[in-house]
Amino acid sequence: MKFFKRQNGFTFVELLLVLSILVVLTAVILPFSEKRLNQMTEEDALKAFMATVHETQLYATTHKEHVRLRFSEGGSVYKSLRSDLSVFASGRFPEGMVKVQNTGLVELEFQPSGNMYPTGKLTIRTKNSGTKTITFQFERGRMLING
């Protein structure tokens, strides 16, 4: 009978080396992934806001009613209002994302035809992506949002 004294596996030092490399990589990657996650949240919030603007315009057109989109709570909350001031759509920007107070448009107003009056620029300040400017204008009967 032969006895084998050779054992297969990793030494404690090898395991410590691998674990220390993983710790260093994690420490380097985490700050970048958190910032990217916050940027994606802000991008999603901006898309949701634009969808609410389109929904408000569509409501004005289909119901032949004057409607508006107003901001409240320092520019972090927006609500679409019927002519009787009842809310039919609303949303909230994530923390650190607000409509700049001294921007060109105070609120968005849509006539029963769906036309926006007045047109102009709306500035939104974000925590991670900087300042975003949305330009509302009409071209060939459609509203264009540039951000």
Rank of each mutant, 00 (worst) to 15 (best):
G96S: 07
F93H: 09
V98F: 12
Y78M: 11
E107C: 05
V106R: 04
S90C: 08
G96H: 10
D84I: 02
A89P: 00
S72P: 01
R92L: 11
F88C: 04
E55F: 10
Q101R: 14
S80V: 03
E73A: 14
F88Y: 15
V98S: 06
A60F: 03
K79A: 08
T61R: 12
H66Q: 14
E107D: 15
V53Y: 02
H66G: 03
V87M: 12
R82Y: 08
Y59G: 05
A60H: 02
R82Q: 14
E107H: 08
G96F: 10
R70C: 09
F71C: 00
S86Q: 13
S76N: 11
S86F: 05
G74R: 08
K79P: 02
P94E: 04
E55T: 11
L58P: 00
R82I: 01
E95N: 11
G104C: 08
R70Y: 05
G104A: 14
Q57K: 13
V77F: 10
V87P: 05
S86H: 10
G104K: 08
S76Q: 14
M97R: 01
E65I: 01
T103N: 06
K79E: 11
V53N: 04
E73R: 10
V106N: 07
V67A: 03
L58F: 09
K99H: 01
L105K: 05
K64M: 11
L85D: 10
L85A: 10
T56A: 15
G75D: 08
S90V: 02
N102T: 08
S76H: 11
G91A: 07
F71I: 02
P94N: 11
G96D: 06
T62Q: 15
F93L: 09
V100Y: 07
H54P: 02
L58R: 10
L81M: 14
Y78K: 01
L85N: 10
E55G: 03
G104F: 03
K79R: 15
T52F: 03
V106K: 00
V87R: 11
H54D: 13
V77S: 10
L69A: 04
V53R: 00
R68Y: 00
T56L: 12
T56M: 09
T52Q: 11
S80I: 08
V77D: 09
S86T: 14
R92S: 13
T62M: 12
H66R: 15
N102H: 05
G91S: 05
R68E: 07
R68F: 03
V53H: 06
V67D: 09
T62F: 13
E95P: 10
T56K: 02
T61C: 04
R68Q: 08
Q101C: 04
S83P: 04
H54V: 00
V53P: 06
H54E: 14
F71Q: 01
L85V: 02
P94F: 05
R82S: 03
H66D: 12
L85E: 12
Q57Y: 07
S76C: 09
F71M: 06
E107S: 13
Q57C: 06
S72R: 12
G75W: 06
S72A: 12
K64I: 09
V77M: 12
S80C: 15
G96N: 08
A89K: 00
